[in-house]
């Protein structure tokens, strides 16, 4: 049996189906796992993705030839069967299952195994070959249960309030921001958000998602409005003049990278919360084992380490170089020029 998917300069390519998955160069037919900018890039002839991803792609990439399908709704063409399955990473995020002559390959895209109750619960998909991400493929990345992290965030907000400070939570505008919002909305009457998060929020509301109410940070809002309140802002806003209006404030960064002290210090964050939308070490191992795959390709992250460990565990594994995992989702967080 040959390769159902080949690793090319433009991305993961399925020769039988004549499509690419998350290509980093413009191609004719693209299947998109999720709407983060390192996976969904502009310039492709057509886009196939999950229903929930389409409105966000539209916001980010404008009008294109989009085809949407649901999870576990196989489509067949050119002798292959293609279906999407929940990846649990962000809204709409999907694993791609491709079957050809009884051989099954699955491309994970980005995923996490803990159910965040927004993105859809990760579904282990049995396959022969599994192409997995490895963003946090080191055993030091060992997440606390999200409920505990939410408690930490709430305690932090509470102590900021006692000190008369505004709590500025840094979270990616697509995925993390909605997750954090759900966790803290009941704490305070209102949650303020940066324009980039507001834009994503509006698109999701229009698409029918039920989300807590938010107030957009605009130049008209008086400084006093933010006192002791919670603001959610994307990483690109951290450390910019846009933040000044919240003074006195405390910055809490929500990211898996915050697991390591040095990374947190580098960010100059007052607090770091290791809340991730990616699987931790145990999650990656759990996911790989659940597929029953006999061959694993590890992409973006600690692919060398992860594939070596899998090989030692008796699962044939190799690393693949991709162009994912750079500038993750920064593109969506364009600064609000009018505010500066």
């Amino acid at each position: 049996m040959g390769q159902i998917i080949e690793f090319t300069d433009s991305g993961l390519y399925c020769p039988a189906g004549q499509f690419y998955i998350d290509p980093w160069k413009p191609v004719d037919k693209a299947v998109i796992t999720h709407a983060h900018s390192d996976h969904a890039r502009p310039g492709n002839g057509s886009y196939l993705c999950h229903y929930a991803s389409t409105p966000i792609l539209q916001l980010r990439l404008g009008d294109n030839a989009y085809q949407s399908i649901g999870w576990n709704e196989p489509i067949q063409f050119n002798g292959i069967k293609l279906s999407l399955h929940p990846a649990g990473h962000i809204i709409g995020s999907s694993q791609v299952r491709i079957e050809q002559d009884g051989e099954v390959w699955v491309v994970s895209g980005d995923y996490k195994v803990e159910n965040d109750s927004i993105s859809g619960a990760f579904e282990p998909v049995p396959c022969h070959t599994f192409i997995t991400e490895s963003t946090f493929g080191l055993p030091i990345y060992n997440w606390k249960p999200q409920a505990d992290i939410y408690t930490d965030i709430r305690n932090w907000i509470h102590s900021n309030q006692l000190a008369g400070k505004t709590s500025v939570l840094i979270a990616y505008s697509l995925g993390k921001a909605q997750r954090v919002l759900q966790a803290i909305a009941h704490l305070t009457g209102k949650v303020f958000v940066h324009g980039a998060i507001w834009n994503t929020h509006q698109v999701l509301l229009q698409a029918g998602w039920q989300l807590p109410e938010v107030i957009r940070v605009t130049p008209e809002l008086p400084k006093e409005a933010f006192k002791g309140q919670v603001v959610i802002a994307p990483p690109s806003a951290d450390g910019t003049p846009w933040m000044r209006r919240f003074a006195p404030y405390s910055v809490g960064v929500c990211s898996g990278w915050m697991q390591v002290r040095g990374h947190q210090r580098r960010r100059n964050a007052d607090a770091g919360f290791a809340l991730s939308d990616h699987a931790d070490w145990k999650g990656l191992l759990q996911a790989v084992k659940a597929t029953g795959a006999t061959k694993v390709y590890a992409t973006h992250g600690f692919q060398a380490v992860f594939s070596r460990y899998l090989t030692e565990q008796g699962i044939e594994a190799a690393e693949v170089k991709t162009e994912y995992g750079t500038e993750e989702e920064e593109a969506i967080t364009e600064p609000e020029k009018t505010d500066e």
Binding site: I153, M258, R261, R265, A269, A274
Partner: peptide
């Protein structure tokens, strides 16, 4: 490893190692 850094939540009387760990964390993060 998430943390809370504001010292208002320190509780005197907690174990000494816990207090010291909190101090080291605060000094590293502030």
């Amino acid at each position: 490893m998430s943390n809370t850094t504001d010292h208002t939540i320190h509780m005197p009387g907690l174990g000494g190692m816990q207090q010291f760990a909190q101090l080291v964390q605060d000094l590293g993060m502030h």
